[in-house]
């Protein structure tokens, strides 16, 4: 009864009392049931030759290939170079996005000059840029990094710019009353206000960067997870292709998790229900 009353008067945003171990275990296990079922059916279909194992290798074969590549050290340099490309492209793209987004978000004049052109460029498919980047920058690292940077630019730019442009007028007025103008108003009011928007953009940009690294590594690369994946396709080893897909998924998930944790820490001031 007392617990019922406690729950009824619980203020919004205050976590529920700690649940039992069983309930917490259930919360962890429940999302794993469906993928486990898929893996089981997939494994069964391969083991009983219901599907051609050359076209669809069983999960155990895929994991075996992945384990082998990791243990032999074959994957490490490819993983390192893919990470390097993604991180360099991401850093370059979002750095420019933050600068341009701050400018176009703050100034209507600059928004009217720059924003329409950027939106037009955004609609050009990413793959259409590949020949141009190869022509301009060659087939070495710079063309790959620039392709990733270009893709990472837009999500951060759009979110950050709209965060700054839509900043609360009432808070801006407080800044104005205390004589904050130009760069000072941006750094002390607009930038912190738009941090939640910025983090949404950063997470999207990171996701896009991992998507594009595959395309970038198809541009005459001789290293990187994308190259290993392509090599697996050329040599008819589907288990390698699928192992590389798992590596991409894990890399993307890890970097997104890091950004999400960082956002949670930086945006601690937000007065939200915090349902994440």
């Amino acid at each position: 009864m007392s617990e019922l009353l406690l729950n009824l008067v619980r203020p919004l945003g205050v976590p529920w009392p700690a649940r039992g171990l069983a309930a917490r275990a259930q919360a962890i296990v429940r999302p794993l049931i469906f993928p486990a079922l898929i893996l089981l059916v997939w494994q069964g279909a391969g083991s009983f030759r219901l599907v051609d194992p050359v076209l669809l290798p069983t999960p155990t074969r895929v994991l075996g290939a992945l384990y082998e590549m990791l243990v032999s050290g074959f994957l490490n340099p490819h993983l390192a170079i893919s990470f390097q490309r993604v991180l360099l492209g991401f850093a370059g793209g979002v750095a420019v996005a933050v600068l341009v987004g701050a400018l176009t978000g703050y100034s209507r004049f600059w928004r009217s000059i720059i924003d329409p052109t950027l939106h037009a460029l955004r609609t050009i498919p990413g793959l259409a840029w590949i020949p141009m980047f190869i022509l301009w920058l060659g087939i070495d690292e710079s063309s790959k990094v620039v392709l990733i940077a270009k893709a990472a630019f837009f999500p951060t730019y759009l979110n950050f710019m709209s965060g700054i442009a839509r900043a609360d007028r009432k808070l801006i007025e407080v800044g104005e009353v205390y004589r904050l103008r130009g760069a000072r108003l941006v750094t002390r009011v607009l930038l912190p206000y738009s941090l939640p928007f910025l983090f949404v953009g950063l997470r999207q940009s990171m996701g896009v960067a991992w998507l594009v690294v595959v395309a970038a590594e198809l541009m005459g690369a001789s290293s990187g997870i994308g190259y290993v994946l392509l090599d697996g396709e050329m040599t008819g080893r589907a288990q390698i292709v699928m192992a590389c897909m798992i590596v991409f998924a894990l890399c993307g998930k890890t970097t997104d998790f890091i950004l999400a944790r960082l956002a949670h820490r930086v945006l601690r001031w937000q007065d939200t229900a915090d349902r994440e």
């Binding site: 009432k170 808070l171 007025e173 407080v174 009353v177 205390y178 009011v189 912190p192 206000y193 941090l195 001031w269 937000q270 007065d271």
Partner: peptide
């Protein structure tokens, strides 16, 4: 000249 508004208008991050 300073102002206190109808709402506190505090910067939530500070």
């Amino acid at each position: 000249i300073s102002v206190a508004f109808q709402e506190p208008r505090l910067m939530p991050w500070l």
